[in-house]
Each structure stands twice: as C-alpha cells, then as structure tokens.
Amino acid sequence: SDEEKKVRDQAKRLGVNTEQLLKWARRQGDEDLVRIVERLLRS
C-alpha cells in the first residue's frame, strides 16, 4: 500500500530498520504510524 511504502521510505531516511522505526513511532506517540509499522512487521 501507499502507506507502507511511505513507512519504508521514512525508515530508510532515518537509517533504521522496521523494529527501530516502531520504537521511534511509539516515542513520537504517532498511533497511525505505529499501526502501519506493526502491520508491516506482521506481513
């Protein structure tokens, strides 16, 4: 999905993997991002 591509691009920009991005999203309190990243991790 578009959202998932955006998440992957953001992880690349930050230089982190998906698990690290999830931690980062939780720290930001970004519920939408957390949900998308969790979906990516499960897929």
Rank of each mutant, 00 (worst) to 15 (best):
R35S: 05
Q10D: 03
W24F: 02
E3M: 13
D30V: 14
R26I: 12
D2T: 09
R27M: 15
V7W: 10
E19M: 07
Q10V: 14
R39L: 08
D9W: 03
Q10T: 12
R42L: 09
K5D: 05
G15K: 10
K23C: 15
V37R: 00
G15M: 06
R42A: 11
V34A: 04
W24A: 10
D2F: 12
D32E: 12
E3F: 12
A11W: 11
D32S: 08
R13M: 05
R13N: 03
R8A: 08
Q28E: 04
I36S: 02
S1Y: 10
N17G: 07
V7M: 07
L14G: 02
L22M: 03
R35F: 04
N17K: 06
Q20G: 06
K5A: 08
V7I: 10
L33R: 00
L22G: 00
R27F: 12
L40F: 10
E19K: 08
D30H: 12
R8Y: 11
K12N: 05
R26A: 05
L40T: 01
A25Q: 01
K12P: 02
R13P: 02
A25L: 14
D9G: 08
L41Q: 01
E3T: 10
T18D: 04
L14M: 06
Q20K: 08
D30K: 11
E3A: 13
R27A: 15
E3R: 13
L21Y: 02
K23S: 11
D9A: 12
K23W: 12
L41Y: 01
R27D: 15
V34W: 03
R42F: 07
E19S: 05
N17D: 09
K23Y: 10
L22P: 14
Q28D: 02
G15N: 05
A25D: 00
D2H: 11
I36Y: 08
D32M: 13
D30L: 15
E38R: 02
D30R: 12
G29F: 14
R27Y: 09
T18Y: 15
K23V: 10
R42V: 08
R42C: 15
R35G: 03
Q10Y: 13
V16C: 15
T18G: 06
R42G: 07
V34I: 11
V34L: 08
K23I: 10
D30N: 13
R35Y: 04
R8I: 11
Q28H: 12
E19T: 05
L14P: 03
K5M: 07
G29M: 12
K6E: 07
K12F: 03
S43K: 13
D32F: 14
R8M: 11
S1N: 08
N17Q: 04
W24P: 12
Q28S: 10
R39T: 04
V37L: 14
Q28P: 01
A25P: 03
N17P: 04
L14H: 05
L40G: 00
V34F: 06
S43F: 13
S43T: 11
R8T: 04
L41W: 01
S43E: 12
E19Q: 08
E3S: 13
D30Q: 08
K6H: 06
L14V: 03
V37S: 00
W24I: 14
R42E: 07
A11L: 13
S1T: 11
E3Y: 13
R26G: 03
E19R: 06
D2G: 08
V37A: 01
L33E: 00
R39H: 12
R8V: 07
L22W: 03
A25R: 00
D32Q: 10
L21D: 00
S1M: 08
R39M: 09
R26V: 10
R42Y: 09
E31C: 14
